[in-house]
Structure formats: structure tokens, C-alpha cells
């Protein structure tokens, strides 16, 4: 799971190390990546929203 989160985080930046990339390739199901991606997007939204709230005050 941690691995998936790390990969998705790397994906947001468009960067992934060689070793991890190989590992990602091994898993055939994309679902963990998709679900994690959506969850991370929500986390991203919350982070940006709280930064915006902080900046606005």
C-alpha cells in the first residue's frame, strides 16, 4: 500500500525512480493505483484549500 501511495505521489510530479517503476509494472491490476490516485487528489484538494484559507486570513 505504501508503495502504491509513493508511486502515485511520484506520478503527481511525473517522476518515478527506476526501481519503483519496475515494481509498478509487475502489478497487473490498475485499480489500487486509480483508487489511490483519486484519494490523493482529494488530499491534494484539501491541502491546497487549507493553504488558500491560510493565505486569505
Amino acid at each position: 500500500m505504501l508503495q502504491v501511495i509513493k508511486s502515485v505521489l511520484a506520478a503527481f510530479l511525473g517522476v518515478q525512480s527506476e526501481k519503483n517503476r519496475q515494481q509498478d509494472f509487475q502489478s497487473r491490476s490498475p485499480w489500487p493505483f486509480i483508487v489511490t490516485g483519486v484519494v490523493m487528489t482529494l488530499v491534494f484538494v484539501l491541502v491546497v484549500a487549507s493553504v488558500a484559507r491560510w493565505a486569505a486570513s
Binding site: A10, A11, G14, R21, D24, G37
Partner: peptide, 10 residues
């Protein structure tokens, strides 16, 4: 290649 896929997804 991989970062292209990731970038498209993000």
C-alpha cells in the same frame, strides 16, 4: 514513457 503516463493521469 512512464512519467508521460503519470503526467497524463495527474
Amino acid at each position: 514513457y512512464a512519467s508521460m503516463v503519470y503526467a497524463t493521469a495527474s
